[in-house]
């Protein structure tokens, strides 16, 4: 399974499914990470985590552990 964590900086991926459960999953979906949305990975924080992505026209910061829950293609 390819996840958002595997997407290189500067590349765009499309969400297939958000895995996991509870608050984190719901929060991701509420912020617009839903099936079919494209996510552009803008950069990685200076210390290697979290990452900054562009989604639905705004900037979002995600931890790599949460990126692993986002299946993409």
């Amino acid at each position: 399974m390819k996840t958002l964590k595997d997407v290189k900086v500067g590349k765009t991926a499309v969400v297939v499914k958000v895995h996991g459960e509870g608050p984190v999953r719901r929060r991701l979906m509420d912020m617009g990470v839903t099936k079919g949305t494209s996510i552009y990975v803008r950069k990685v924080a200076p210390l290697g985590d979290p990452v900054e992505v562009n989604i639905r026209g705004y900037e979002l910061s995600l931890r790599k552990a949460d990126c692993e829950k986002i299946e993409v293609e």
Partner: peptide, 12 residues
């Protein structure tokens, strides 16, 4: 317990 979600907007 579960770590708090760090899904944070970076506002312009």
């Amino acid at each position: 317990g579960q770590p708090a979600p760090f899904v944070m907007e970076l506002p312009p």
